[in-house]
């Protein structure tokens, strides 16, 4: 494992911890999109179908369990926790996330590396992860006062994707036959979706102002 991959995984882990911290200690999920969180739970469920059959390393298995456990518990908190769910901006979080799932599934059935159930589900999870942030970005645009933790959560998620691209560049030059077009293209699309957010995040940081995305 290279430094970019490790840094990417750690950034991903921190993003989840920041979100859980907000939900668990402040008992608030204001500004967080339940739609995006549900999509992530689905992404991990589809991708980690091989968790008990394809052993790679202890690190790998533990991280998979953390991402599965955290994503489902975040969804649970936002839907059912009697205090947390009151802070959910239901009227603002209107993105039709079901409309993302079907096209991703169809695309995975058409474009995949191997037509098997596990491989199609893996590919589906890559396509879905690429667009899963969209409901969150739309919600951020509608939120007048984005609190620091929510801004940091999205920033860390974007940083994780950027680091994964550096990881692929590194692996491409250091490993023989390391070519994964599906992973790379969907990963690149995913990272580009953050470009706009990054721009405004750094602007607000530079000018020491609160983060605000223009409509």
């Amino acid at each position: 494992m290279n430094i970019f991959r490790l840094a990417g995984d750690m950034t991903h882990l921190f993003s989840v911890l920041v979100l859980l911290l907000k939900i668990h200690t402040i008992k608030s999920c204001a500004g967080v999109s339940l739609k995006t969180q549900e999509l992530y739970a689905l992404v991990f469920a589809a991708r980690y179908l091989d968790i008990f059959t394809n052993y790679i390393s202890l690190y790998n298995t533990v991280m998979k369990l953390i991402f599965l456990g955290s994503s489902f518990s975040i969804v649970w908190y936002m839907r059912y926790h009697k205090i947390v769910r009151r802070s959910y901006d239901k009227d603002q979080d209107t993105f039709r996330h079901y409309f993302l799932i079907l096209p991703c599934l169809l695309l995975a059935l058409l474009i995949n590396e191997k037509f098997t159930f596990k491989e199609v589900m893996w590919t589906f999870s890559l396509y879905l992860e690429a667009v899963a942030i969209l409901p969150q970005l739309v919600l951020l645009q509608r939120t007048r006062n984005i609190d620091n933790l929510t801004g940091q959560y999205v920033f860390l998620l974007g940083a994780y994707r950027a680091l994964y691209i550096l990881n692929w560049v590194y692996r491409y030059f250091t490993e023989p036959h390391f070519v994964h077009w599906i992973t790379w293209v969907s990963g690149l699309v995913q990272t580009l979706l953050y470009a706009d957010f990054f721009y405004y995040y750094f602007q607000s940081w530079k000018n020491n102002q609160k983060l605000h995305l223009p409509a």
Binding site: H12, D50, I56, H180
Partner: peptide, 10 residues
């Protein structure tokens, strides 16, 4: 080696 199915990334 079946590189494709060796999904070692998260």
């Amino acid at each position: 080696l079946d590189k494709i199915l060796y999904h070692d990334e998260l």
